[in-house]
Structures are given as structure tokens and as C-alpha cells.
Nucleic acid binder design. Structure first.
Lengths: 206, 206
DNA sequence: GCGGGTATCTTGACGGTGTCAAGTTAATCG
DNA sequence: CGATTAACTTGACACCGTCAAGATACCCGC
């Protein structure tokens, strides 16, 4: 039924993910412990283990949500009139930067070594992450077949390199290393320029 | 003197840093605990606290060592005949990629959010990190005044953008997200190409 | 309706962590 | 030589992730 205090929670998994996202956002990855999370949701220590094998799997689910968001950004960008691939790319990049800077802890988790290398990424995470990148690579490929890139270009390599630029900028920005927040707008525009140059200006040779 | 078991260690700080670097390399950041470290060095739990305020400070020192290494790479690159700035840059990039891939855990620590944003970077770390980047920016600036870049270019922005590309590629590579090891050589060459394209619009060789 | 099986949740316990507080040893310096 | 001080130790605490074993409530075939 719908009593307030029931032994079976109803949809604990969703509640855990929701609360975990809040904790991650507000207290950072260090503040996100399973014990604290369980308490916030109003459930005992070990309850989460019936919905996630261990903490790593919960983190993977949180990361997967983030990639879902990025993938959505790709789709939204497609709403821009399709004859203007450049403007589509620009729209995607802006959304990407906005996402990374508004949820830095989530972004850090999504692309962090703990999930991908130290631990083993869950199948769900790998699938959504790879498909997000594939969608991006397809857009880059589209720009090639559209004549905006030299015929001989390797679309995969260009996608990797341009994504890496975007990714690197986000990391440096959200971690506050070489790029401070005051520069952000300007740096964003510069990165868009650089990526567009990489992807659409005819290059001297190869 | 030099007895094997003496109450005062002699140079505990250096011994700690040395062993911590080994631990970081071999077992990853998760395997690097102060207790385990103290035991390896043959000293009690709390001994390290007389040389580092807390764990964060020790990690900062480890990161600073890494930036020292990068700075050394910059200097080494200067040994290349100075009339060939492009080759200097290429040399630096190759060394940079080699460093990141050979010591991924260290690289992750150096640029990781836990040190820079979650915690407060030590003054020593900030100083060496910023000066390393400044040296890089100066090289980029040199390429501008050398006529290899359009006059109106903003050297700081170009330095940020090109470093970001390099950084992003390293992250994606060492975290094993979109770029697997087999692609590495090819991706490295592509990234060098991209960065050179970014930094010198009119290049003739290669 | 009922009985058993199963999914869900709980409490207890263990080994691990960083680090505060207070005590102990050894080097140094007047 | 005595006192100050730096270096090191041991005890304790509050966390953490998670294994094991028990309690509870739901569900499905009879």
C-alpha cells in the first residue's frame, strides 16, 4: 500500500539513485558513502546491496545517468536545422560545457579513472558511454561526407581528437587548474573556435 | 649514526615520498594508505604526520614531483635547436604522452579534482604547476612572435586550448574510455598533428 | 485460505581507514 | 649536565565497505 513506514520500500533503487545524485552534487564524491546514503533514504546499512552489487555498481549507475544526459544533448542538437551541421556542433558544445560546469562532481565521476580503470565499468555504463561517443563520431562523419572535411580524413581520429579537446577543457575548468571561472565564457568560445577549425577548416595537408 | 633500527629515522620525509610513489604506481591511489605506507617504511602510524600535515599534503607533494618532471621535459625540449620551435613542441608532446601513459596513477593524481578542488592545493604544488604551464605558454608565445602564428592570436588562449587537447587525450587514454592502447601510437601522432595545426597554421613539413 | 518460497530488509561483526590526544625517546643547545 | 624540543609511539574514536545470518513481508500454486 502507501503507508509511510513500510518494510518494503517500494522503489528503493530509484530513491537511492535520486538521493545519491543529491549527495554527490552537494557534498562531492567523498561525501557520498553508502551508510550516509542509506540513512538519508531511511533504510538500513545493507539495504542498498539488494539493488546494487556494491558501491562501484551504484557509482556506475550514476555515471550512466550522466551519459544519458549527454546523449540527450546530442539529440537536442539535431533539432537545429540539419543543413547547418556547424551550428549543431556549436549547440552541442555549449550544452556540454554547461553540463560539465554545472555538475562538476558528476562529470568527474563519469570520466574518472576509478570507474573505468581501477574498477570495471558496468555493462550498462559501457553501452551508453560508447553509444554517446558513436553518435558524436557520426556527426563528425556527417560533416565529412557533407564536404566540410577533406575526403581523406579519418572521422574516428577527428572525433577522438575534437572530443579530447572538449574533454580536456572541461577537466581543466572544473578542477580549477589552469583555467579559472572568470575566463570561462571566453575559453568556451575559444574552444568552439578551435574545434570548428579542427573539424571544418580545410587543412593544409595530412 | 647508521644503525639499522634507530628511533629517529634520518630522512623519513624522503623515504615516505619514495615509498609512496612506489605504492601509487603499483597499487593505485586506493592502495596508498598512510598506515600501509608507514608500515612499509618501518615506522609507526603517526610518524608521517610530523612531516606532512595530513594525507592531502603528502599527495600534493607527490603531485608536485610530477609537475617537476613535466617542467624538466620542457627544459629538455629546449635543447632541440632553437630555430625549430615546432620540433621542440613535438618533442615535448611526445615526452608528455610517454609520461602520462607510463605513470597513469601519478598523472591522475596531478590533475585530479581531489587535489585541486575538493582539497586545497599546497602552495608548493600551485607554484610548480603554474610555472610549468607558464613555460609552456611562453613557448607558444614564442611561436607567435616568430611569425608562425597570426599576429592577433591570444597566446594564453592558444596555450590553454592546445594544452587542453593534450590533457584530454591523456585522460581518455589512461582511463581507457574511448581510446584503447592499440590506437595509442596513431592517436598520439594525430594529436601532435592537431596541436601543430592549432599552433601553426602554415606548416610545410611532415 | 494457506503454506512455502523468495525478495527485501535488518542487525552484528570484522578489518580497514584518517587522525586527535597523550605519552615516550633521543637529539640538541645553553 | 639539565632542559628544551623534535621525532616517534601507542591508544582511542569515528568513520567506511561489506560478509554472514536472521527477520519480515510479499507472491504464487494449491
Amino acid at each position: 500500500m502507501s503507508s509511510t513506514s513500510k518494510y518494503h520500500h517500494g522503489d528503493l533503487r530509484a530513491a537511492l539513485l535520486h538521493e545519491a545524485a543529491l549527495l554527490l552534487r552537494n557534498e562531492g564524491i567523498d561525501g557520498l558513502s553508502l551508510r550516509k546514503l542509506a540513512e538519508k533514504v531511511g533504510v538500513s546499512r545493507m539495504a542498498p546491496y539488494h539493488h546494487f552489487k556494491d558501491k562501484h555498481e551504484l557509482l556506475c549507475a550514476l555515471a550512466a545517468q550522466g551519459f544519458d544526459h549527454l546523449d540527450q544533448l546530442m539529440s537536442d542538437a539535431n533539432l537545429v536545422p540539419s543543413d547547418n551541421l556547424e551550428e549543431q556542433l556549436r549547440s552541442f558544445v555549449r550544452g556540454y560545457l554547461r553540463f560539465a560546469t554545472s555538475q562538476p562532481e558528476r562529470y568527474d565521476l563519469m570520466f574518472g579513472r576509478p570507474i573505468w580503470k581501477t574498477g570495471t565499468p558496468s555493462d550498462e555504463l559501457k553501452q551508453i558511454a560508447y553509444s554517446t561517443f558513436r553518435h558524436y563520431a557520426e556527426k563528425v562523419g556527417g560533416m565529412i561526407s557533407n564536404g566540410r572535411l577533406p575526403e581523406g580524413s579519418n572521422p574516428l581520429r577527428l572525433a577522438q581528437a575534437s572530443w579530447a579537446t572538449l574533454h580536456g577543457l572541461c577537466r581543466l575548468m572544473i578542477d580549477g587548474i589552469y583555467v579559472n571561472a572568470m575566463d570561462m565564457d571566453e575559453v568556451s568560445e575559444e574552444s568552439i573556435r578551435v574545434m570548428l577549425a579542427m573539424l571544418s577548416v580545410e587543412r593544409t595537408d595530412k
